[in-house]
Design a protein around this nucleic acid. Structure first.
Length: 124
DNA sequence: CTTCTGACGAAAT
DNA sequence: CATTTCGCCAGAA
């Protein structure tokens, strides 16, 4: 079903992340605001649980400062490599310019089709 | 049932 | 700019 009650919170988070196009990035907080439940941490928790075969473009979610949030050096370089392969550029401080590569969010038709109210975003 | 543990963010200090 | 505070998911032990 298209309504929210059909899937778990994590599944709804993954659904939104799957809408991020290659070459663009979103933030933990932005995903949380779109889903309308949980917070930035919850999105981080959900991403920590994704598997390779899940089809979730996990690399396209970074923190609000434009930086990669993965802890270890291995994870950091993997995510950065994947993003650079999509054309994302990092500055000398390892930050992505969200004004330039930031995702504007799902289209209103997608929101409606998935049980969200497109107008809800106007009041935030 | 309780406790612990992870990819966070905004505001106050 | 560096720290602190608090918000409040899901699975394992």
């Amino acid at each position: 079903m298209t309504h929210l009650s059909g899937s778990s919170l994590y599944e709804r988070i993954y659904a939104v992340i799957r809408q991020i196009p290659a070459g663009q990035v979103s933030t933990y907080g932005q995903i949380a605001r779109i889903v309308g439940q949980g917070d930035a941490r919850t999105v981080g928790y959900a991403l920590a649980a994704v598997t390779e075969a899940s089809g979730v473009p996990w690399q396209r979610v970074i923190n609000s400062q434009g930086q990669i949030s993965l802890r270890g050096a291995e994870g950091y370089s993997e995510q950065r490599t994947l993003l650079e392969a999509e054309g994302i550029q990092f500055d000398a401080q390892g930050r992505v310019d969200l004004k330039r590569f930031g995702w504007s969010g799902p289209g209103s038709e997608w929101l409606e089709a998935h049980g969200y109210d497109p107008l809800w975003f106007m009041k935030k």
